[in-house]
Design a protein around this nucleic acid. Structure first.
Lengths: 218, 218
DNA sequence: ACTACCCTCCCCCGAATGTGGGATTGATGT
DNA sequence: ACATCAATCCCACATTCGGGGGAGGGTAGT
């Protein structure tokens, strides 16, 4: 990569814009190509200044009552490869999660020291995903919760009942389930009856939804 | 945190065990409390040496045909707060993903320089989640894909058809759907017919499964 | 021995669903 | 004006489901 890294900064705090903007503007290898107090018409602003990296305050008063996260969503949809880093003053787990889901690739606390911010910009520009270790840990926690359960049904449903439920999730009819499991149609009905009771549902759609939403089965 | 950080190392390669083991053993502030060539009976081994941090090769021949990932799963279930870091020789995206889901909190490439490994151990012990930037980026990608789609159906289903499908996902019967949408029972049936055709499914369970698995609707 | 499950199978019956036709409006676009 | 399609409704028929029973054999624990 030759040349300098063009950075666009979105933050409603004048203080941050000034200090961070000056820092970026005076660092060799980095150039501040845009600096905005809000994310109204992000797409237009980004189109105008063509940044390589975007720094976005997570806490900004957005256009339609939204915040910086909505801006990220729009921006990421339009420019999937444009790295966006979120800025915030403290590590709010939920907003971290939402930002990353919205398409942000990195995450920084405003009270990180200035050098760390610069490092992060270079990092993100070269394909990394800079995060403070504590934020990274939080991301990991979400990750693990996502893949964790898998066994919530173990205590609730018997082995055979899980087989039948899995078959339901696979879209099979009772007859096909009987076939797959090598048992009679009536037995399938019996198992499903019990599954419905235990899950407190009344039809296959609800059972499948409950199973998949809770990530109880594949 | 007073005292030294006790580390347990699991790796089937003698070379790695020797080099990494020596490194850990001779670094002040870090102590190697256990060093094993396999993860058979991980729980017992960990119980014996009581580490503060576990380093686990991702590529180990496990007890029942499993690998290091299974060991992590067991370990994490038993000791949710024990930080586990994975070691591997190259960045295999799927295994990264699986490891993190299994409960690993950090991830290192074996050809990272030794200093980085030591830093990571300290990091992870103090609540961080050390990852190489490229690995972090991959994690981000999974994160984003997870929350992304939401609109794949937009081109396929009409607005009303999506309403009906959503109601199905919510577990409603045709009659309840008609009620919710303020249309007749027959109209609901009609819409659902079309949805089934477009999704290539033949019953509600399959439709719901296809919808949720593809994250097409909430 | 007794109890408590689980798995298997069976019957009945009413209700819900899947599939095959239709028909009518209104909006949209050519 | 015409075709197209979404959205609304209708009918008919066979199949599938959901809920209510009950029964027998097995395994595991108390």
């Amino acid at each position: 990569m030759s040349g300098i890294i063009h950075v666009a900064l979105f933050d409603d705090s004048k203080q941050i814009r000034d200090s961070l903007g000056t820092l970026l503007g005076t660092t060799r290898g980095i150039g501040l190509c845009g600096c905005y107090p809000d994310a109204v018409n992000v797409l237009a602003k980004v189109a105008a200044c063509k940044p390589d990296v975007v720094l976005m305050d997570i806490d900004m008063p957005g256009p339609n009552g939204g915040n910086g996260i909505d801006a990220v969503r729009a921006l990421h949809q339009e420019h999937p490869d444009l790295p966006i880093m979120m800025l915030t003053v403290f590590g709010d787990e939920e907003r971290v999660y939402d930002s990353l889901r919205a398409g942000a690739v990195g995450y920084l606390l405003k009270n990180d020291d200035p050098g760390a911010v610069l490092d992060a910009i270079v990092d993100v520009h070269s394909g990394g995903a800079p995060m403070t270790p504590s934020i990274a840990r939080k991301v990991m926690l979400h990750f693990q919760h996502e893949g964790a359960p898998k066994d919530a049904l173990a205590v609730l449903l018997s082995s055979r009942e899980k087989d039948v439920l899995q078959a339901l999730v696979d879209g099979l009819s009772y007859k096909m389930i009987a076939d797959r499991l090598g048992i009679s149609f009536e037995t399938v009905r019996s198992h499903i009856k019990h599954v419905y009771e235990k899950l407190h549902v009344h039809n296959s759609a609800e059972a499948v939804a409950k199973t998949l939403k809770g990530r109880l089965l594949g």
